[in-house]
Design a protein around this nucleic acid. Structure first.
Length: 482
RNA sequence: GUCCCCGUCGUCUAGCCCGGCCUAGGACAUCGCCCUUUCACGGCGGUAACGCGGGUUCAAAUCCCGCCGGGGACGCCA
């Protein structure tokens, strides 16, 4: 069997969004599974909308996800001559013809058809008498090259995911191959490239399903073999509309900024439309590659669920080694403007990260909820104050706790706990009351690691200082209902 | 509107091709309980789906038809 060759062909008119990322991933998985070649091609034939910096951003996102390619990136803008030559050849053999209709004329005809618009190009120029055609050519009237679609018959193909697809040729319009400025359209450039690059499998979004018959017509006209097509169901927003910026974060970069790990995003995306035979949920890329099968891809569109992504991220975050996690946290803190380095000696930093790790859902949790572990500049969360600082006696209790902790012999987990419990007992209150209030005092949060671990980590001076600060805060704002 | 495609818990899905093992399985979310110093983790348990209607059959989530619902395409965008 010939070598398997697939490609991912984004157009640089926007950032890499999760739908594109999933398409790239499935191509990559298929290529790796088949030990084939994964090619990257930039479809930038729309000069107006394509931006070089977006190409760079897309490559960046792909690398971040770990989707390495074997050939490319190729740029369609480098191959314009080739497309023109292909178009001319199609014209020469009668599969394409010049069309002099202007965009304005077409627009007019289109609107005249009415609101419900079964519009198809009316083939005015296809039926132009030859002398007239020659005349216009000689007059150098601008024109596009349109594909001459057969008037009868049907075009069908066997999609690897969707199965048999069939369309009557009458339903297909004479689409444009070459624009009047000599630029190719998508239908021309994809086919030309896929033929030239020996692509064996075209794996792309289902939004291309209805374009496929047109392209097959071009393959046939070129006398080329058609590749295998596999269309992927679309990714939808919660409203079941196609996922778009309206739904919030859609780009890979946005998820990175939200503290999502690439391996979590990859895992999540892999499962959006595909389930491995064993039904695993969390599994590494090697396993995905081993088990990936296009035939097992789902046909129905899938709603993107950020909640599940977050859960998956927490799973990955938890299983990360400290060596790998630490730099990520450092970067996150830096991005959040927290100067952890001057706050914590190296060793405690690691312990702190480890303590926070089991509770984190995203990297953001380190710089936000975990801020008090890396800086003295933090605030008391409203929900935490409300929940644990209700008791008016607390300001006095926290002060006394601080005083007693001053004189604890060894400031470790065991002794700080003993100290606190003893105080609670003497006062005849539940230890939990004090523990929870102290946690808010030390971390600003209702949600945090075990109190005595926190104390041991912060050390005597900071612990005492924060307790006193909280006590003061409580007495000064005590009358106000919290 | 026309053409193409899709339709199992709120969500992602298994099962469908090769009808019976499906009183429909798993995961996320959700609810309750346990653990407990908060939260998370973990453990246990619960709520929750075959879009509707006809067929075919001893038997249908699984096969056929219709309807309804959803999505995509209909550009000198890709």
């Amino acid at each position: 069997m010939a070598e398997i060759r697939v490609r991912f062909a984004p157009s640089p008119t926007g950032y890499l969004h999760v739908g594109g990322a999933r398409t790239a991933l499935y191509n990559w998985l298929f290529a790796r599974h088949q030990e084939g070649t994964f090619i990257l091609r930039i479809e930038d034939t729309d000069a107006d909308r394509s931006k070089p910096e977006l190409t760079a951003a897309i490559l960046d996102s792909l690398k971040w996800l770990g989707l390495n390619w074997d050939e490319g990136p190729f740029h369609q803008s480098d191959r314009l001559d080739r497309y023109r030559a292909v178009a001319r050849e199609l014209e020469r053999v009668g599969h394409a013809y010049p069309c002099f209709c202007t965009p304005e004329e077409l627009q007019l005809k289109r609107s005249r058809v009415g609101s419900g618009r079964p519009w198809k190009y009316d083939r005015t120029c296809r039926n132009l008498p030859e002398p007239e055609r020659q005349k216009r050519l000689a007059e150098k009237i601008p024109y596009v090259l349109r594909f001459r679609v057969p008037e009868t018959g049907e075009t069908s193909f066997e999609d690897r995911v969707f199965g048999a697809i069939k369309v009557e040729n009458q339903e297909i319009e004479d689409f444009v191959l070459l624009r009047s400025d000599g630029q190719p359209t998508y239908h021309l450039s994809v086919v030309a490239d896929d033929v030239d690059m020996l692509i064996t499998h075209v794996i792309r979004g289902a939004d291309h399903l209805s374009n496929t018959p047109k392209q097959i017509l071009v393959y046939n006209a070129l006398g080329a073999n058609t590749p295998v097509f596999a269309h992927l169901p679309l990714i939808l927003g919660p409203d079941r509309q196609r996922l778009s910026k309206r739904h919030g974060a859609t780009s890979v970069g946005a998820y990175r900024d939200q503290g999502i790990l690439p391996e979590a995003l990859v895992n999540f995306l892999a499962l959006l439309g595909w389930t491995p035979p064993g039904g695993e949920e969390i599994f590494p890329p090697e396993a995905m590659v081993r088990e990936f099968d296009l035939a097992a891809v789902s046909k129905s569109n899938a709603v993107f669920d950020p909640e599940k992504l977050a859960w998956m991220n927490s799973q990955y975050l938890r299983s990360l080694s400290l060596d790998r996690l630490q730099p990520l946290v450092e970067a996150e803190l830096e991005a959040a403007g927290v100067q952890a380095a001057t706050f914590l000696p190296g060793e405690s930093f690691q312990k702190t990260v480890a303590l926070l790790q089991t509770r984190a859902r995203t990297l953001k949790d380190f710089s936000q909820g975990g801020r008090a572990f890396f800086s003295d500049d933090f605030e008391y969360a409203a929900d935490a104050r409300k929940k644990f600082w209700k008791d008016p006696a607390l300001h006095d209790l926290l002060r006394q706790l601080a005083e007693r902790l001053e004189s604890v012999e060894a400031f470790d987990i065991a002794q700080t706990e003993e100290c606190l419990r003893k105080l609670a007992e003497e006062k005849g209150i539940k230890a939990g009351l004090l523990i929870n209030a102290a946690r808010v005092a030390l971390t600003g949060q209702a949600v945090a690691p075990g109190l005595f671990e926190v104390m041991a980590l912060l050390g005597r001076q900071r612990t005492v200082g924060r307790l006193l600060r909280a006590a003061e805060h409580l007495s000064s704002s005590a009358p106000a209902k919290l």
